[in-house]
Write a protein that binds this DNA or RNA. Structure first.
Lengths: 138, 138
DNA sequence: AGGTTTATGCAACGCAGTTGCATAATATTT
DNA sequence: AAATATTATGCAACTGCGTTGCATAAACCT
């Protein structure tokens, strides 16, 4: 585990530091999405707010995590599948927001539905967020 | 126009005031979506920030407008079709965010695509935001 | 181990959004 | 139409999220 974490960091040209190891560990342990606040809580205020922000930003830049926009305006982050290269996210999956447990889950196996846009419109990107009850809360 | 605006307000049990008339007018004139900042700009700082926030909140509560979550984390608002009753939005349409002009447009005629969720998941609501170039920017 | 580079923590700041309260405007009653 | 009751407004102050600059500390390189 410890080795895996360090390896991921090195592979992305990030120096291996305490905060990065800890935060990456959280993402690996949690299979849902994490908001900035969740991370602060789970690390027990061990790291400065600023460090958490900067760490998330580095992970985003490197393509280790991706961000998920939600209606409540609190950005969440989740691990990318390992084929995201630096600066090139291709997280073509929908996100599920459970109104029971509050978790945000990446549904990697559900591919994006096709949408027929009106004449003249050209779509490039699509964000789909479905909310409801997840399999544990049903 | 003036009469129509007052009528909409009264129909929703809102007292008819300067700020509400002006802001509702903006929504009727603009057929895209407006963010809080846009409204402040277009009203020329004539109203207090707080008044704008509260006005938008009342409109939301009454079902006159609905909110649109976007990836850039700036909430936008757009007029509901007139069949939204108080507290019961049913804006079952997708939103289009143009990367050219920055406008957010409600595509009322495009219905929501079906998504097959994994076993055990039950979806209740769906948000779809497509970004790309609108018919004027193509 | 030494020097270099990079990350961290702190303090301070800016901005969005909220709340309480006194005043002003709108609605209601007679 | 005037008086009263209700509701909205503007101001000030406050909270919380996110950012920036800078000195220190930690990680990297050879």
């Amino acid at each position: 585990m410890e080795k895996q974490i360090s390896h991921i960091l090195k592979r992305n040209q990030l120096s291996v530091t305490g905060s990065r190891k800890r935060i990456l560990e959280l993402f690996l342990a949690n299979n849902g999405a994490l908001a900035h606040g969740d991370i602060e809580k789970k690390t027990g205020e061990k790291f400065d707010r600023v460090t958490v922000y900067r760490t998330l930003q580095s992970f985003l830049d490197k393509g280790i995590i991706h961000s998920i926009p939600t209606a409540d305006n609190a950005i969440r982050y989740a691990l990318c599948k390992d084929d995201c290269s630096q600066g090139h996210h291709h997280d073509n999956h929908i996100h599920f927001l459970c109104i029971g447990c509050g978790n945000t889950i990446c549904l990697d196996d559900v591919n994006l539905p096709a949408v027929k846009l009106p004449k003249g419109f050209r779509g490039e990107q699509m964000e789909v967020v479905v909310s409801g009850k997840c399999k544990d809360c049903e």
